[in-house]
Amino acid sequence: MSAELEIDWTRCQGRGLCIELLAADLTSDPWGYPSARRADGHQSGTVILAEDQREAANEAVKMCPLSALKLRTSAHQ
């Protein structure tokens, strides 16, 4: 099981709030959009988070001004 942050890229405007809240997993790309720190962190549209980031991720989901985020728990294949 792992937590995945699903980003609606059509909504996200790269304001960067989630990057601050999830600094351990996310960094800003050259245009200000959230980007996974781990090289394999992106899985078509979602970002895989460290397990202990669940709470911070919930916070980010609530705080995103564009409601672009969702948290998913997924069993990996």
């Binding site: 980003i7 609606d8 890229w9 059509t10 790309d29 050259p30 959009y33 980007s35 090289a39 992106h42 899985q43 078509s44 549209g45």
Partner: peptide, 13 residues
């Protein structure tokens, strides 16, 4: 690497 997996569709990948 930066654009892959970061869109609503597979166009960037």
């Amino acid at each position: 690497q930066l654009v892959s997996g970061r869109g609503a569709c597979h166009h960037p990948d």
